[in-house]
Structures are given as C-alpha cells and as structure tokens.
Write a protein that binds this DNA or RNA. Structure first.
Lengths: 198, 198
DNA sequence: ATTATTTATTACACTCAGTGTAAGTTCGCA
DNA sequence: TGCGAACTTACACTGAGTGTAATAAATAAT
C-alpha cells in the first residue's frame, strides 16, 4: 500500500477539476473588478495560468464561465427536492413547499454579484431568462415523475411556469430590499398574493 | 404645388426605410436559405447593396435583423389592446380577453419560420425568452395604467407572468399541431386549464 | 520498466462580428 | 447657392471562437 491519501479518480481527473475551477475563480474576479465586456479571454487565460487555446478546451465560451459560477446548487437540488414532496398534495402546493425549502440555496452572498453581472449585457440578460426556462423544465420533468398517471402534463407545465414566475417576483423583491428578509419570506408572500389573483 | 405624390417625410426618410427593410428582407432570405450562423454580415450587406460598415448604421448586430423581422405587430398592439379592456373585469380575465383578441396577430405564416430560426442557436434561443419577458413588461405597464389606484403592482406582475406563461403554452401547442386550429383556440384551452390548477 | 494509447496543452493561422475614425457623398433647407 | 446635417464608405483594429497539427503528460498494456 502507498500513502493513505485518497484519490478516487486519478491525478488526471483532479488536475482537470482544479484547472476548471481556477478558470471560473479567476474569471469571476476579473469580471467583478473590470466588468464582463472589458475582460478579455486572454486575461482570464493568463490569470488561470493556461494558454488562450486551452481555455476553450474547458469552456466553450466566455459566457459559460459566468454561467458555471451561477450554477450554485439550486438547479441540481430542485429535482430531488421535488421528488421528495408528497404526491398527495395539489401540484401547486407541493411546488410551493419545495421552493420554500430550497430557498436558502439561492441566498448565496454571491447571488447578488452574479446578478449584477448578468444584467450588464444584453446577451447575458437574455441568458438569464433562458436559465429560468431551463429551471422550469427541470421542475416540470420532476413533477411528471412525481405524478406519473395520465395526461396532466399540460397542467404541470402551467404550474411550473407559474411557480417560476412567482420565484422571479420573490427574487426581485429580495434583491430590491437588499436581502433584508430571507428569500423564503418573499416567496411565501408572493405565493399568497398569487392565490388572490384567482 | 409640385406633383401630387405624397411624401410625408421627404426623400431621406423614405430611402432610409427602404434600406432598412431591404436589409431585413435579404437577411431573412439568407438566414432561411443558408442558416443563421452560416450567413455572414458581408453576405447580407452585399445582398442589400450596401457596404459592411453601413449595415451597422442601421442595425447594431446580426441578431437585430432577425428580431426586427420578428416584431410582427403583436408587441406594439398589446398596450393599446390592453388599455381598451374594461377596468371592471378582474385583471386575469381582462388579460385573457385581450390576448385572445390579439391572437390573430401572432398567426403570421412567417411565425413558424422565425421560430425555427430562433431555435437554431443558443444565443437566439435565449433572446427569444427575453422577448417574452419584454412583452410581459409591456403587459404589466399597460395593466398599471388601466387600474391606476393603489399598490396592486405586485399582483399585476404575477398576472402578467402567468398570462405570458399561458401564452407560451398555447404557442407551443399551436406550433406542435402545425397550426391545425387557430391560436385563439389553444389560448382558451390553456386559460381554462390554468384555472383548474387553483 | 518500456511501450502504446489516450488525454491535455500549446502555437499558429484563420474567420467573423463589431467598433473607431476620418473622409467623401447626398439631402434638406435657408 | 451654399451651409449643415444625415448618410455612406474605406481602412484598420480588437476580440471571440475554430481548425489543425504538433508536443507533453498520464494511463493502460505487455
């Protein structure tokens, strides 16, 4: 036996992860310091200690560096969290409970920073909306798994859309008030308001 | 008096409009024929009979050519149509009626073509979602004008989001069924389904 | 341990979108 | 007629992203 140090996936795997993370870390720092557009790929590559060409071996675009950083747990946690809800609840209620439970995942101190960056460019702003649609899709698929029976899929799509819309409102208020209350607070408030519209 | 030909805004204005429309027309044709990415700016400029640099005097990006073509009445008609609804109705009902009335504006024969193009690239797909958010914003502002009173604004935002989500579902079904029924049909269906979720 | 084989890294050269600048042309208007 | 504003163009530049082929490092095979 060699040293007791665990290396589950070999040296190669580890270096790969380290490089990838270094790119994101350095890239983000530069974005924040100098702005997204003003930060060139060469600058990121140099900061990460790799060549310009190698950057594209890890990420397919500059935007992807930012999006990789944005992927803070929430999206990955959504499906399992939704599947964990009781199928006896009404869809909208189950989704509401699920989102409120997950709210803390969104409350990273970095969330606000990311958001500011995402608003800084038209293309990024558009990408941000697209992320909501992707998340909506994840939610929708999880719902289809939770309630497998018949053809309620269109209803699920509507519920997923409505829920994501409510989340967006809650996030906006949360950011507007500079996170004075936890996100879950604004979420509950928004869902209550939603119910009043029907 | 000169000739009886009406020229409301002078020769300059007319040429400008003609050039702009020619760019969109030729650009769109090239996009459809060769694909969006494969179509270069130089190709569009040449087809429109202008220099590469002049293109950017009219549009600030390649995407904008496509988006200009996409702006088929619906967005411009939304605000006046919403303001035309009775303030006595419940917000969601008023919005529903308004959208159903406007549905025919979306039914351009070109709608499907645009949509295919918009799905062809990640950046364009994201832009498409962003357009929905812009439309939602227009709807929201119109609602605030229709019901000026107090602080129901958050509720209006929710209604606008929900309505746009419902429109998206209806559009998807409409396209999926290759416009077998008019859009208004799917819209009504989707709004009915929506009500059942609460 | 020494090959053989992937996988990772780099340099170089290229295309294309988008911008700055400065100079020339056309149009509107006095 | 001529002056000023709007339009057009050429030229040169930056910066993102891709193709290719050649080297270096890690892993697998003998």
């Amino acid at each position: 036996m060699k040293g007791a140090s665990e290396r589950p996936q070999g040296l190669r795997e580890r270096k790969r992860r380290e490089t990838s993370e270094r790119i994101v870390e350095k890239g983000l720092k530069l974005f924040v310091r100098n702005g997204y557009e003003a930060t060139t790929l060469d600058a990121i590559a140099e900061a990460a200690g790799i060549s310009r060409r190698t950057f594209f071996y890890y990420f397919k675009s500059k935007e992807d560096v930012l999006l990789a950083a944005h992927d803070s747990g929430f999206r990955q946690a959504l499906r399992p969290a939704m599947l964990d809800e009781s199928p006896d609840l009404a869809p909208l209620e189950a989704v509401q409970k699920c989102l409120i439970k997950l709210a803390s995942r969104y409350e990273t101190k970095q969330s606000i920073v990311f958001d500011r960056l995402m608003e800084s460019t038209e293309a990024l702003r558009a990408r941000k909306e697209a992320v909501f649609v992707e998340t909506e899709q994840i939610l929708f698929e999880a719902m289809c798994e939770l309630w497998p029976p018949p053809g309620r899929r269109d209803g699920f799509r509507l519920v997923a859309m409505v829920a994501m819309g409510t989340l967006r409102l809650a996030l906006d208020k949360w950011k507007l008030n500079d996170a004075a209350h936890p996100l879950a607070y604004y979420l509950r408030q928004s869902f209550t308001l939603l119910a009043k519209q029907f």
